[in-house]
Design a protein around this nucleic acid. Structure first.
Lengths: 194, 194, 194, 194
DNA sequence: AATGAATGAGATTTCATTCAT
DNA sequence: TATGAATGAAATCTCATTCAT
């Protein structure tokens, strides 16, 4: 799809790490190039501008999001199981890749450019629509209460997902995200089950 | 408690507005002074440094948070009613003061300085403890399911609160926050009611 | 009219000198600030951008041009004498201020920005219209041949003026501009007299 | 004489076009290579440095100038006819090749290097001497007034030539150069004829 | 309390050029 | 003959802050 060169992937990678560790304000061309051990102008062989680096990060997220949702659709699971899987996969992924957590839910970072914020909104929308679709199916299967509108159910599930990750991040990854995530899912599941 | 001068309050005010409208990267001494119609050095009569402005913003939030929670405790309401009130008050306040929404839940903004992030964590903690206390009481009153640990209930309630405000902000305040907030509360209430 | 501060005038001044001596490519903020003995950022207190410095130079030229033409109109001279005066004044001014010569007829310098080239064209137009008006009057007074269209006469006079200044400049100001200018005017006068 | 390779000629060509369209400041190795559809280092296979490209442009002009003057000398025309031919040929050539006009009379472009400005001065000198020689002959043939020194006549002719081309270029080639050139020549001819 | 002038540090970006392949 | 990757130098401009007034 979006075929980034090896160097481009490296740039994207260290950029995410820099944002995660030191915040967007420290994402400078100097810091990126220092991390890669090359000169500052060398970055411009691989990206036309700094904004393009941020766009590449988002483009990467978008692909990842789409892929994981599409893969999920193909699996032979019930809708409620797919919701659980979607929910829990986030924790697995972020545990493996904690930097991602800092960037993926930090809409503020991408506020200052229309192209960036458009991408962010599209990613959010994509996630929400997937969740809504699954909730609808699960309700039809009678695996989720039907007396609660799916829009609100979706907000509650995604809201829970986001806040636990935010807490984990702000606590400096000091608790076991997968364990706390499982507990949260159990609670949500108990609440929404008919 | 912290007694800010009139000018200091003005600085805090326009700073919040700038962050809300243009992001933290645009919060510069130049932009602040331009918004206030004074010169840049004049800012330094009122704040020793830029960090002090951000600390003042957070200090302000902290006071507001404490105040509203303390006031809530004094009112003659049941615990579940207090939770509802806490939940709904946010929407009222943000509808009146949309800029606040952009800053109050943007922890990323305050990531790059220990003094700042410490303040942010304290505010979060304060809110959570208040919520936990109320949930406990509501459970004792049998107004909330008791078979779900209050830690998870708290996450779900605050998570829902945060995500709806985030959506509202990213949508450029394009929907009726109070109405959507009411719908969300109804759903949560139905779910957590015994 | 355009009221430049003292510092702004200094910037304009050294900028003209730099262009004259080293060409437009050496007109850098660094060189300007070095010439003035201040730091580079200090320049930006006085001009918003480099383009604004160039615009100020042109704005200055425009004023000078307008002024000198307007002053000329008021003097009690015949049209042909005014043409001579216009012609010869250039040599006097440039002899006093040789750097001006390098910039005033270097349209190429101002090619890369629409605002700049617009200004250049306006200055040229202004000069040409003044010259056309004077030629017309002189022809009516029978001081200039009437069997030659004034458009061509204007081109010949201004063309002569420009080329002699160009030669003087490229020769590193190595000949007496006023003397050569007088000789040229004598020749032109002899040719265009009826 | 100077035998440029095909690639070198291409480089010279696009360089002239770039200078004409966007000014000398946009004549960068990057822009040259982009125009040619090759990589930047590839340019250095054909020219040792950027200055060498500019020198090649001037060297080309010099050859062209010499050629056309030498060819003119061989033709069986009177001196005044040769002057007319020299004058009018410029308009024909520039109409065919408008970019040339932007560069050939832009001495400022070549100001910042001694080797470049030396070349420019030589070309000018060559042209002037040819013109002076022709005027002298025409005066001896009694085709041009003899009471005007040929130095001034030369200035007037070449000055007229240059200014009309400058106007044409700054007007974005918006008028018929050959027609206006003819009108100008008629005027000059009428003036200088005995 | 406020300002005009200034600055050191640093940001993004461009440029001519080099080198290994 | 050509390219991908890289770089030192330098350009424009921004930022937080200081100081004399």
């Amino acid at each position: 799809m979006n075929s980034f060169s090896d160097r481009q992937k490296e740039v994207i990678d260290v950029s995410i790490k820099i944002i995660a560790k030191k915040g967007i304000q420290q994402l400078t061309i100097k810091n990126i190039s220092k991390s890669l051990g090359i000169s500052e102008p060398a970055i411009y062989r691989h990206f036309e501008s700094k904004i393009d680096i941020l766009l590449a990060i988002l483009s990467n997220f978008k692909e990842m999001t789409k892929d994981s949702i599409e893969r999920l659709q193909l699996i032979n699971l019930s809708a409620i199981q797919k919701i659980e899987s979607l929910f829990m996969n986030h924790f697995k992924n972020f545990t493996k890749n904690p930097e991602l957590a800092s960037v993926i839910f930090s809409e503020e970072i991408f506020q200052n450019d229309i192209r960036l914020s458009t991408q962010v909104l599209e990613i959010m929308k994509y996630n929400q629509e997937a969740m809504l679709g699954l909730i609808e199916k699960a309700q039809r299967n009678n695996d989720i209460k039907t007396n609660i509108p799916r829009e609100q159910l979706s907000l509650i599930i995604i809201g829970g997902l986001r806040i636990i990750i935010t807490k984990w991040r702000l606590s400096n990854y000091s608790f076991d995200l997968e364990k706390e995530g499982t507990d949260l899912w159990k609670a949500i599941h108990k609440l929404i089950a008919p």
